[in-house]
Amino acid sequence: MSATNAGTAGFDAAAAARAWRPPPLIESPLLRYAVYLGALLYVVLGVVTVEVNWTRAAEGMGRAAGFLSGFFPPDFVSKGDDIFEGLMESLTMTVVSTALGIALSIPVALGASRNLAPLPIYLFCRAIIAVSRTFQEIIIAIVFVAMVGFGPLAGMLTLTFATVGFMAKLLAEDIEDIEAAQAEAVRATGAGWFSWIAWSVLPQVKPRLIGLSAYRLDINFRESAVLGLVGAGGIGDTLNTAFDRYEFDTAAAVLLIIIAIVLVCEYTSGWIRRKVQ
């Protein structure tokens, strides 16, 4: 059919227009109504079954203004030593756990790649990843505190474990995606397993590895700020104590410091990621 013919003979635009319907979001009508109905049902059920003590909430809203005014002005000074100590714990925890976590995540990622590892190793590494990703850092921290006692070491171990799960999963996906062809080419030259990893696999995942590491540094700092709630050290400890003692001005100071450091982390990691790409 030429593009410049003057239309199909007998084409009925009016009929076509009458039959035309705007395209729906979900193709199959059955599925569409099932999804709509299910969503509606869920929201209703969810909202109805949420038990809210509205009188307590209303009371609290009344007091909220007074409570929030307790945050101002933020007090950096009177608990300055505690804040500094907590901050140092958080920062050191972040640095060590990120470094250690990345180092450990590389072997785990290699083990968790189906195209590289034998089945038992694959399953073992996948199990590590699954456990690390399923349980929130706080829960892991509770276990580590029970094992090694209160303090930043428990926090450090928690974040290391979480970093391994996070990095290894994403890296393993990358490694599995690597085109078999290119990997084959290097293997065909008769290189050993280790040099194959070093020359073929690692160079391909390196930019992403660096990007993810920067991103994870950012996450680890943020997480380090709450681990103190269960006794795993860091600035969260300071924050929790401040809340317990109703020293809201100190709490406000801590929150501002966290926001500031996250901002710095974010800009830095964004900068690093741009550099790498």
């Binding site: 059919m1 030429s2 593009a3 013919n5 003057a6 239309g7 199909t8 084409f11 635009a13 009016a14 076509a16 227009a17 009458r18 035309w20 395209p23």
Partner: peptide, 21 residues
Amino acid sequence: RRDVEEAFRLLDRVGLAHMAD
């Protein structure tokens, strides 16, 4: 309706009426 009709007429004119969706 006449906009949709015109749209079909023009699509047919350029040979794409069957591609509308």
